Amino acid sequence: MRTLSLAFIFVLASIAPVQTALLEEKTAKIVPAGTIVPQPVPPETFSEKPTPVSLRIINQRKNPIYLQGLRQDGERIQIFLYHREGTRGWKPFFEFLPCDLPTCRGLHAPRKSCPKPIPFVIALGPSGSADSFKEVPWNGLLYERSEATREDRKHRYCYKGKVPKTGRMRVEIEFSETLQKESEKSGIIGGRDHAVFEFDLPPSRPSYEIVIEGRGNP
């Protein structure tokens, strides 16, 4: 009888670690509904190398014109990028990764401080002058804003980057011949016109021109 009891205790002792391991494995797989846990892999990496393009904005009007600029971790001209594949509609994208929101791969990265964007004006001289054009680089990357589902609502939005290799690009810029006069709107251009340029991907040239036509000049 004592031999049977010892054997029974030995069997229980050998089973306990297996049951504990199974319980821990099952518990580790439980994730609250509505929560995503992406792998933190900052900074964002891409499997393909982007093709940079230079965009030259040229003023062909007799009057100076003004472009909208923004200062935030550097200075840039505000441009609007769209991309489409085949007969699909245009889809808007951002040209850079905003400093206040993470990539979707690095959703759990700590939020970093981000300076507020400050508007400023970039002037282009009249047609034929030395300052009648401005070069704007595009690094060949596009960023799309996505909504992440997280119950704590921290870093609720994130950005997905892509390297477009095919399709068609559309670049839009806003310009004006006037400036806002109100002091609280200093650095803001006035009534806005638009200039648009499109090109196919992959780019056939390293540089493209966006021309502000001379129509409408006195």
Rank of each mutant, 00 (worst) to 15 (best):
L81G: 09
G74I: 11
K49L: 07
F80S: 12
T51E: 09
R71Q: 03
I57F: 07
F80L: 13
N59Y: 07
R61C: 15
P52Q: 07
R76V: 01
F80C: 07
E44N: 04
P52R: 06
R71M: 03
R71C: 03
Q72P: 03
P50N: 04
D73Q: 09
P52M: 08
F46R: 06
N63I: 02
S47G: 13
G74W: 01
T51S: 13
S54N: 14
L70G: 01
E44R: 04
G69C: 09
L81D: 07
L67T: 00
D73G: 14
V53L: 15
T51Q: 12
T45F: 03
E75A: 13
R71Y: 00
S47A: 12
R76G: 01
N63M: 05
Q78N: 11
I77P: 00
G74K: 02
L55M: 10
I79H: 01
F80W: 10
I57V: 09
T45Q: 05
Q78K: 10
V53E: 08
R61D: 13
K49A: 11
Q60D: 11
D73N: 10
F46W: 05
I79G: 02
F46P: 10
Q78W: 01
E48T: 09
F80P: 02
L67F: 04
G74D: 04
Y66L: 07
K49Y: 05
L55T: 00
Q60T: 08
V53M: 12
R56T: 03
S47T: 01
I57R: 06
N63D: 08
Q60N: 13
L67N: 04
R76C: 00
L55C: 05
R76S: 07
L70R: 01
Q60A: 14
I77F: 00
Q72C: 13
R76N: 02
N59D: 09
R61A: 15
S54H: 11
L70C: 03
S54M: 14
D73F: 08
L81W: 11
G74R: 01
I65P: 06
Q72R: 12
P64K: 07
P52V: 05
I77L: 11
S47N: 12
D73W: 03
L70I: 11
E44H: 01
I58Q: 15
D73K: 07
K49R: 10
E44F: 04
I58M: 15
F80A: 11
I58L: 15
T51K: 11
T51P: 13
I65G: 13
E75D: 14
S47R: 12
G74V: 11
I77W: 00
E44V: 14
R76M: 06
E44W: 00
L67A: 10
K62D: 15
P64I: 05
L70Y: 00
T45A: 12
I57L: 14
L70H: 00
I58W: 12
F46G: 10
I57M: 11
F46H: 10
I58Y: 14
L70S: 04
R76L: 04
R61W: 10
Y66C: 08
K62G: 15
R56D: 01
S47H: 08
Q60E: 14
Q72Y: 04
N59S: 10
P50V: 06
D73S: 12
I65R: 12
Y66D: 03
L70Q: 01
Q68R: 08
E48P: 04
I58T: 14
L67Q: 05
Q78Y: 03
K49D: 06
R71H: 03
L67M: 11
T51W: 06
F46E: 06
I65L: 15
N59T: 02
S54Q: 14
R71A: 05
